[in-house]
Write a protein that binds this DNA or RNA. Structure first.
Length: 256
DNA sequence: ATGGTGGCACCGCCA
């Protein structure tokens, strides 16, 4: 079973990239973040004939998450709470008896901002959401754009960037808190070396060519999956297209 | 280089 994740930064702008990647890589599941499209405008037609079914929750302009699957999508849940005004950052489903939790973790803006506190609170609620529903003996995946580099291997300039909302102690602690329930970082379990990034800031010149990146996207897995990992890899995708993306695809294959 | 650009929908906000 191959599970993949991709921050699209607008699904409609990245449609060709996503369709091409699905066709070429044939993952069982693809989780997408930052679809940036409200549900009535979701580009469902584009995926007709792709062999994938999908579920999604979006909102106007910001956020938005979706799950694409070759297999039947069951037990879908949207959001951390019952609040219908909640930002569209979480969608969960069960696919082939594997729980898939797809998240777009809040970025946090600046350490002093209320957005940063929202990020920490959101992660705390996510931990409760998971602990209430699942058991770490089950196959559970937590994936998506976690907006956090977990250690110095995961940023291009750890000295300068330490304290950034995506590379700082409070957020690492909050992610660790969720992981302590029973998750391991699948890519890191397969690869010890640094410089393996999934995001390059498009505002910085030559970030990609100079490999000034960040590893912000993750596939976290419970041990029943982790112990059956075949491989995990980063794929920049078809960057030659007119609208390349600043995040990569990240994938993991499990022998289940 | 403490800037920069891309995306969406609007006359700015978010990353």
């Amino acid at each position: 079973m191959i599970i993949a994740t991709f921050n699209a930064n607008s699904l409609r702008s990245r449609l060709e990239i996503v369709l091409k990647w699905l066709a070429e890589n044939q993952p069982d599941v693809l989780c997408i973040q930052e679809t940036k499209v409200q549900d009535v405008d979701f580009p469902a037609k584009a995926f007709e004939g792709s062999g994938y079914e999908f579920v999604f929750k979006g909102q106007k302009k910001y956020n938005g998450v979706a799950i694409f699957s070759k297999h039947k999508i069951q037990q879908v849940e949207i959001g951390l709470t019952e609040d219908t005004d909640e930002e569209a950052r979480l969608i969960k489903a069960v696919i082939n008896d594997v729980v898939i939790i797809n998240t777009y973790v809040p970025q946090g803006r600046e350490p002093e901002s209320d957005k940063f506190q929202y990020k920490l609170d959101w992660l705390k609620k996510l931990g409760e959401f998971i602990a209430q529903r699942f058991d770490s003996d089950q196959p559970v995946i937590w994936t998506g754009d976690l907006n956090c580099a977990m250690d110095e291997r995961d940023v291009h300039d750890p000295d300068r960037l330490w304290g950034h909302v995506c590379y700082c102690q409070p957020v690492q602690d909050a992610i660790m808190q969720v992981m302590d329930w029973g998750f391991e970082d699948v890519f890191r379990s397969q690869c010890d070396s640094g410089g393996k990034y999934t995001f390059w800031d498009y505002r910085a010149k030559n970030a990609l060519t100079a490999n000034r990146g960040w590893r912000l996207d993750y596939i976290m897995a419970t041990y029943p999956l982790l112990n059956n990992t075949v491989r995990s890899w980063i794929d920049t995708g078809p960057r030659s297209m007119t609208k390349p993306s600043d995040h990569t695809f990240l994938a993991a294959e499990f022998d289940i």
